[in-house]
Amino acid sequence: MNGQERSSDAFQRRSLSMKSLLRDYGLAAFLALNIAVVSILSPAFLKPENLLNILTQAAPLGMVVVGQVFCLLVRGLDLSVASVMATSAVLATSFAATDNSMMPVIFAAALTLGLVVGLANGVLVAKRGVSPFLATLATTIVLQGIRFLYTEGSSGSTLPNGFAVIGQGRFLGLPVNLLILIALTLLLGFVLHFTRFGRKIYLVGGNPRGAMLVGIRTDAVIISCYVISSMVAAIAGLCLVGYVGQVDQWTGKGYDLDSIVAAVMGGVAISGGRGNVLGALLGVFILIVMFNAVILLGLPVQVQMILKGIIVIAASALYIADGNRRVA
């Protein structure tokens, strides 16, 4: 090998190493850069109370994102998560009791709601061939109608005191809902990366036909992913209502799109089969830091919408470019 060939080979190795570093640590570096910039622009950002507030606000969205990842991995999406959150919150107030002994019953009812909605979404997508967008949008509208029919548009605040602990409390200095998020992330991350079911999810999302040829029941895998998404959204709804302290018809409004934006920004491929929950959670914290910066800097709230759109466009462009490189 002559000197020119050795130089070219060394350059390629350095290029691959740089790409690997960007892929593995680029998102964390971008989050750190955001924090640094916002801290300079607004010193109030680094105040302990503001940081705890960010963590508390990020937890419910993080839960929804962790569930949304499962749907995205199998080439789907779940627009019904926000409506599931609102409906589970309404369920929490429908028992008209403030006794903490009712909390297990409320959680069981919310999880049952998530199970039913997830099954409906999954069956429509996997068995009936309805597009994920239309299937979950239809479920959203149905749940919204049920809520308005039941509550007649009124809000409620009859909640066991334990929900305030879940939504606003601290344990060892950390928000309780953040600890719930950590537990869910560890559990579902383990399922994705260390179980046969997790490997099936990646195979179904990456190569559906190949998955069918090796005997995987792709419909069952897809339905299970929608069930997981809806059940996690139901838990997130209860955590969010504990933080807000009052239930209205739009609890969790915007979490449907925010969860998709955060997951996509965190490296979960829209085309399925690629991504993980840790990357998606980094996307959550980037979004929350941006939203917090908008408030601290006194910018119009509409700036948040502009940022979301830019993020989706940039992430989509990166995936298309990456996909073209893989094909080449």
Rank of each mutant, 00 (worst) to 15 (best):
N2W: 09
G3F: 06
R6N: 14
A10D: 09
F11M: 14
M18A: 15
K19V: 07
D24H: 13
D24Q: 13
Y25R: 04
Y25S: 12
G26W: 01
L31A: 05
S42N: 08
A44G: 07
K47G: 12
E49G: 11
L52D: 12
N53L: 14
I54L: 13
Q57V: 01
A59H: 08
P60Y: 05
L61G: 03
G62I: 05
G62K: 06
G62M: 06
Q68T: 02
Q68L: 11
C71S: 12
R75W: 03
L77W: 01
L79S: 05
T87W: 02
S88V: 01
V90Y: 09
L91N: 00
L91W: 00
A92S: 15
T93Q: 00
S94A: 13
A96L: 14
T98M: 09
N100S: 07
M102Q: 13
M103C: 09
P104M: 09
V105Y: 01
A110C: 04
A110H: 02
L111R: 03
T112A: 10
T112F: 12
G114E: 04
L115F: 04
V116D: 09
V123A: 14
V125S: 03
G129Y: 08
G129S: 10
V130S: 01
P132C: 13
P132E: 08
L134H: 07
A135M: 11
L137H: 09
T139Y: 11
G145E: 08
I146M: 12
R147Q: 15
R147N: 13
G156P: 03
T158Q: 08
L159Y: 03
P160R: 06
G162V: 08
F163R: 06
I166G: 03
F171C: 06
G173E: 04
G173R: 06
P175F: 02
V176F: 11
V176R: 10
L179Q: 06
I180H: 04
I180V: 14
A183K: 02
L187N: 05
L187G: 07
F190Y: 15
V191L: 15
V191C: 08
H193D: 15
T195N: 07
F197S: 11
K200N: 14
I201T: 11
Y202A: 11
Y202P: 07
L203E: 02
L203D: 05
G205M: 02
M212Y: 13
R217L: 12
T218G: 15
T218E: 15
T218R: 08
D219S: 11
A220S: 12
A220E: 14
I228H: 00
A233I: 01
I235Y: 10
L238H: 04
V241K: 06
Q246S: 10
G252H: 01
G252C: 10
K253H: 11
S259A: 13
I260N: 01
A262W: 07
A262I: 06
V264L: 08
M265I: 15
G266L: 05
V268P: 00
I270F: 00
G272I: 00
G275M: 02
V277K: 01
L281C: 03
V284E: 13
V284R: 10
V289F: 14
M290Q: 15
M290V: 13
M290D: 04
M290T: 13
V294E: 12
I295K: 12
G298C: 09
G298L: 03
G298R: 00
L299A: 10
V303D: 12
I313E: 12
S316C: 09
S316F: 09
L318V: 15
Y319L: 06
Y319I: 00
I320N: 05
A321M: 14
A321L: 14
A321S: 13
G323N: 15
R325I: 14
R326D: 07
